[in-house]
Design a protein around this nucleic acid. Structure first.
Length: 336
DNA sequence: GGTCCACAGGAAAGATAGGGTC
DNA sequence: GACCCTATCTTTCCTGTGGACC
């Protein structure tokens, strides 16, 4: 059934991005000046997950590189490269200067100086999940580099700005902002149709089944594509010739489990222990959670470290919390 | 309304690990 | 191999918040 699985991958960039023409045009306009030696505009893209923020940013940079291969670009996920050092490391890599960094020997400030020296032409950088950066002052450092143009991606615009100091906020306030909203069911069907045409054998899936996936994805293209991928994989495994509604229903839990397992693999022993304790309870108070964790650990981490771990797991959407102060409880995320 | 206390999260210091220099 | 420099992770200390109880 699957003929070319690439089109079903999360990081696949399609030849054409559907239903985002206005946003693509605005982003292209913001970057266009660099083609004529001018100064492009920094841009902020925000909206819920699965609305195509990363996709339109990467797509626009691909287009730009087709026109001007000499202009270097770089994609940085600030959840993975969350401190200044790693971010600048990635920036150097984007300039083909990754080898210039001799491990930890080079201090952060020295790295910035090195980056400044290497910049002799426009450099366009996507900073994805910028609200998750642990040292948001990096934006000020980058702002002082006239060659660097930033495309900042965040889920919530307010989360980004409330963490920035006034110098950066005042400068970014004037930057173009692109707000992306969730896809409608009809839009998701069209996106899925295109992906299915690329990835699957002809007639592997019909309109009714695509609509069924779209309705279950609640406007999130990432979820919709993940379910399609899971259904097709499951169909291949079981020898089915077509993806049916029943196959999709069977594949949905698998798609969710796949995403959950991928995330669980990122946790260390202490974090997994916390996850297991929460899993054993419908809801658990932070104090009770720590007591249970302490009981099961030979060398337990402190409460402060555990709070950091729990924040990380909440961000991964593995657990969630409700209530505040003494009324606070943790539970597993079950709605995805 | 006042007090208590669980809880969150920032800041600074300490511990650890990786790699370079002599 | 000892020492130095660095980033990263963890701990300690502290303050602010807000729910529970009287």
């Amino acid at each position: 059934m699957i003929e070319d699985g690439r089109a079903l991958k999360d990081d696949f960039i399609p030849l054409e991005v559907e239903f985002r023409n206005q946003e693509l045009n605005r982003l292209s306009e913001a970057l266009a000046p660099c083609l004529e030696g001018g100064t492009p505009e920094n841009t902020v893209i925000y909206g819920p997950t699965g609305t195509g923020k990363t996709c339109i940013a990467k797509y626009t940079l691909n287009q730009l590189q087709d026109e001007a291969p000499d202009i270097p670009t770089q994609y940085i996920n600030c959840w993975q490269d969350y401190n200044k050092y790693r971010t600048v490391e990635r920036l150097m890599e984007g300039l083909g200067e990754g080898d210039a960094i001799q491990s930890r020997w080079m201090a952060k400030d020295e790295l910035i100086v090195r980056l400044r020296e290497e910049l002799d032409r426009p450099y366009i950088v996507i900073l994805d999940e910028i609200d998750q950066h642990q040292e948001p002052e990096i934006l000020y450092d980058l702002y002082t580099l006239p060659e660097v143009t930033m495309i900042l991606i965040t889920n919530r615009e307010t989360q980004l700005f409330h963490r920035l100091d006034d110098r950066v906020t005042s400068r970014l306030r004037g930057a173009p902002r692109l707000k992306l909203t969730k896809y409608s069911s009809a839009e998701l069907v069209s996106i899925l149709e295109t992906r299915a045409r690329w990835a699957l054998s002809p007639d592997a899936i019909g309109d009714t089944e695509l609509e069924f996936i779209a309705e279950n994805a609640a406007g999130d293209a990432r979820v919709a594509i993940s379910v399609l991928r899971s259904a097709a994989t499951y169909g291949d495994r079981t020898g089915a010739e077509r993806i049916t509604e029943r196959l999709i229903e069977e594949a949905i839990p698998g798609a969710r489990e796949e995403l959950r397992q991928q995330t669980l693999e990122k946790l260390d022993g202490h974090q997994l222990r916390l996850y297991n304790i929460i899993q054993e309870h419908d809801e658990i108070k932070p104090g009770d959670l720590y007591a249970a964790y302490e009981e099961r650990s030979e060398d337990p981490m402190t409460r402060r470290t555990i709070r950091n771990y729990l924040n990380k797991m909440e961000h991964y959407r593995l657990i969630e919390s409700s209530g505040r102060s003494r009324a606070k409880v943790y539970s597993l995320v079950t709605d995805e």
